[in-house]
Write a protein that binds this DNA or RNA. Structure first.
Length: 463
RNA sequence: UCCUCGGUGGCUCAAUCGGCAGAGCGGGUGACUGUUAAUCACUAGGUUGGGGGUUCAAGUCCCUCCCGGGGAGCCA
């Protein structure tokens, strides 16, 4: 007999005379003469209840079954005479596939703290909350591909190992095949030449520069993959390994970029609400009671768009101005408290801040006609802060070369990047969105460590 | 990296002014013929994060290290 997954069994239209269910025992309740088993197989958040009459043989098996054990049950799918569920399995046979010792199995039937569950990251997907989280994560991943594919974007696999030591963001992880001894005996300048690639190599911090090359060939493209930052930032919003979506559009400007980011965020919310209602319900009920209102608010309203200059002025003039720890000032980056004020207090919705001072943004962002600002954009959302960061790219060779030189970098290192401006350059724009941050926004979960299966953070690499 | 709050049974926490280390849940044993994180009774379980110090006496005070949470910086 073929296994029926619990999701399908619970969606049955009529009773089934013979059914095979496999899964993990969430609870066992014994009475005189029979037992109830709640089984979950991960196919959905709900368990199926099996009722099993006691016979000497079955009691012998049931005695070895505890919370956490994996079992295989055959029987009949019938309408449940009890309250609380439509269907249940009246079991005929019960087989113990894998026992779980009750004294040492760490998950109990009660709620556990997120902190404790992080210490057993290998078992937490067996809980309702993390099961729901990682089903949503899978669905969100699919939704991203669907969104871009439907719009005619091509998915580009940009490299994980890179040679460019400056992609414009953050500290990088060094990649080397040299052993520790060789490394310590070799002079810093000579290490690269002796290494696998004949030069120093790192884990990518962004696929953007590569994606630009493909946008200027295939038109509209996106990357979706892991990225790595060696920053020792210890916050609930940062991880050393995280996933990023980076679309890049040829013949597009900053407005197109802003439109795309807004459309994407709204699409992803709608997709998850439509396809993961049961899993989302858990987060709306137990994690963030305002979640549905927040998501509705984001879907139904257009995002506020404001220039950096206007945003600074607004912050300087607002009632809270004197209470900011950091004074808002033209030429300085917006602080967390400023972002929160804009999205949570003032506009009460997502805000796109654009046209930033050239001094605080990387070399590849397009210089505006005023000569003082670049065509950059940050999408800020309540609670999460920066969800998306992007820009129209500098397509003019001379301006780009000057920017690279001005920032103390060598144009030689970017020869292939500059080639795209040398041969058939075109206006183009793109952005990056943190996948985990989108997931946090969707679920109301406030710690990035709880939206990624095995989180990598400073001093933490157990799993 | 800085600021801040924590670390007590498997989990979540309590312990007054420095004076006998406790509860709920979970576990074990038993009861119960439709339970719903079942219920009821009984029961076992502790080097109070590590090291050092003060004291007649330290979970509690001091020093130090480790680990975790929250905030900041940086960012996605």
């Amino acid at each position: 007999m073929k296994r029926t997954c619990i999701k399908d069994a619970l969606n049955a239209e009529s009773s089934v005379t013979e059914i095979l269910i496999k899964g993990w025992v969430r609870t066992k309740r014994d009475s005189k003469g029979f037992s109830f088993l709640e089984i979950n197989d991960g196919s959905c958040i709900k368990n199926i209840q099996a009722i099993i009459d006691h016979t000497p043989e079955i009691v012998a098996v049931l005695e070895k079954i505890n919370t956490g054990a994996s079992v295989s049950i055959t029987g009949e799918l019938i309408e449940s005479p009890g309250k609380g569920q439509k269907w249940e399995v009246r079991g005929k046979t019960v087989e113990l596939l894998g026992a779980a010792d009750a004294e040492t199995f760490p998950l109990q039937k009660k709620r556990h703290s997120d902190e404790f569950l992080r210490t057993i990251a290998h078992l937490r997907p067996r809980t309702n909350k993390f099961g729901a989280m990682f089903r949503i994560r899978a669905e969100l991943s699919y939704a991203i591909h669907k969104f871009y594919r439907d719009k005619g974007f091509f998915y580009v696999h940009t490299p994980i190992i890179t040679g460019s030591d400056c992609e414009g963001a953050g500290e990088m992880f060094r990649v080397t095949s040299l052993d520790h001894e060789t490394l310590s005996k070799t002079k810093k300048e000579e290490q690269g030449a002796r290494d696998f690639f004949g030069q120093e190599s790192h884990l990518t911090v962004s696929g953007q520069l590569s994606a630009e090359m493909y946008a200027l060939s295939l038109g509209n493209v996106y990357t979706f993959g892991p990225t790595f930052r060696a920053e020792k930032s210890n916050t609930p919003r940062h991880a050393a390994e995280f996933w990023m979506i980076e679309p890049e559009m040829a013949f597009a400007d900053l407005d197109d970029n802003m439109d795309l980011s807004e459309e994407m965020v709204k699409y992803l919310i709608a997709h998850i609400l439509e396809h993961c209602p049961d899993d989302m319900e858990l987060f709306a009920k137990f994690v963030d009671k305002t979640l549905m209102d927040t998501l509705k608010n984001i879907s139904e309203n257009s995002f506020e768009r404001i220039t950096y200059t206007d945003a600074i002025e607004l912050l300087q003039r607002c009632k809270k101005a004197s209470k900011f720890e950091y004074k808002p000032e033209y030429g300085l980056d917006l602080q967390t408290e400023h972002e929160r004020y804009l999205t949570e207090k003032h506009f009460k919705k997502p805000v796109i801040v654009y046209d930033y001072p050239v001094e605080i943004k990387p070399f590849y962002m397009r210089l505006n006609d005023d000569g003082k600002t670049v065509a950059a954009m940050d999408l800020l959302v309540p609670r999460i802060g920066e969800l998306v960061g992007g820009s129209q790219r500098e397509e003019r060779l001379d301006v780009l070369e000057r920017r690279i030189t001005d920032m103390g970098m060598d144009t030689e290192d970017y020869w292939w990047y500059l080639d795209s401006r040398r041969f058939g350059t075109a206006p183009h724009a793109g952005f990056g969105m943190g996948f985990e941050r989108m997931l946090m926004l969707l679920t109301g979960v406030t710690n990035i460590r709880d939206v990624i299966p095995f989180p990598r953070t400073p001093k933490s690499l157990e799993f």
